[in-house]
Design a protein around this nucleic acid. Structure first.
Lengths: 135, 135, 135, 135
DNA sequence: GTGGTCTAGACCACT
DNA sequence: GTGGTCTAGACCACA
């Protein structure tokens, strides 16, 4: 389940975050459920506890989980997630940047758009499988 | 012309690369034309020569320019630029990642898709025509 | 009545203390009246007994309650509560800290003062009258 | 200048942050000026580099400084500081909490208000000394 | 040189 | 037990 690539350019704590986000999005980690403790997870994925904690801390900052000191870390109820406009702008900028990169590679507009749509539509199924429509 | 944001998380050499790619793709830097020397450019944009050096080296690795020792660096003929599949996959991953983030933020599939399309279409003219609208 | 926010950064025992202080100051818990036992309260508010225990111990240290071994914990007569200067200094420091933060955020002195006064005055009734308005 | 109290309840990185905020507010560290490097400061105040970095990172998150990787950390121009409404609400909550604490201590409303005002007005001079009116 | 990340420990307060 | 903080090292990419 947990996929880590130590050779990746992406830092480990970011990969840990991405994995957890995926699990949260697909309801494998349901709302209000408890995440593994920092120590547990760090042992399980063979990573230093500090690295896991950094991931948890950042997830909390972004609103995906909340922490009760001395008790554990829990998935934020989706109803409670507030859309952070600053974060949204960052993601938009990231999308724009990626799209530009496609054009820099020599793809024309239509081809680039095609690539983007194929990625999005591929993602559609991924979410249909794991998510619930009536939640 | 050259837009650098030192405060950005993006490294300087990547920003230099992006600027040059933009200039190449919009034919401001025509095929086979000579790029400014590392020293010239670094002075012009007030950046460490090593940084420009790294941008040039990476551009060459990706096929955008080629170097003739002792003579200079030249823009590869667009016809000869081959799509770097590794780079393409990176960008695809980036797109997917950003799209997922949109959904993580509480947007449903259709809303997220809408956001993406608006970004793409807003960006349409910039690279299609090789000109700028109001910047 | 008892308001606990597990998601808060404030530790549970501090929140328990604050709730009890509030009840004492508003005479809901009258002078010399008996507090619920640690076990009772911990069951009632669904909190670990150790946590309640710690709250009681700290309240006693600060003079709000006193314990009669084997009998129970009782509210100190308000006349006998002496201002704990150490605690007072802590609160003062906290106030100053918060005020500085307001100014750090770009508010000028007058604006920051305005914010503080609005908060104070909004809070006026809650403790003056011992009642609640709309909560 | 730098005041650290290792025995304090406040964590070291928070104290480091507070010290730096103070220096920034009083223009000892002017806009766009460079903060000491993580290593320099950590050596100077005899604290682990990681702790200093945590402080820098958090200051950046709150908008007081910005980072240029490989170059250094710089004071954000005051004109660029955006008022983060989330942070503002946190400070307001902190103020309200502190004010409640005063009342819990047995101070009546007027006395508590007096305490608050005295603190604020004490701060006024502190800011007049170090700050500039025409900035 | 800089900041960013990571490891392998440790101690603390809280539950 | 939990998360939070801290130390004392280390390596990396970047400028």
């Amino acid at each position: 389940m947990f996929q880590l690539d130590l050779k990746s350019r992406k830092s480990i704590y970011e990969q840990v975050m991405d994995n957890l986000k995926e699990l949260i999005m697909t309801d494998v980690l349901a709302s209000e459920s408890k995440l593994p403790s920092v120590r547990e997870l760090s042992k399980y994925i063979a990573v230093n506890p500090n690295t896991v904690q950094k991931a948890y801390r950042e997830l909390e900052r972004q609103g995906y989980v909340y922490t009760v000191s001395g008790v554990g870390t829990f998935v934020t109820d989706k109803k409670d997630i507030v859309l952070d406009s600053v974060e949204l702008e960052k993601v938009k900028a990231k999308l724009l940047d990626a799209f530009k990169q496609l054009m820099y590679m020599g793809l024309d507009f239509d081809k680039a758009k095609e690539v983007v749509l194929s990625i999005i539509n591929g993602e559609e199924c991924l979410s249909c499988k794991g998510g619930k429509k009536d939640d």
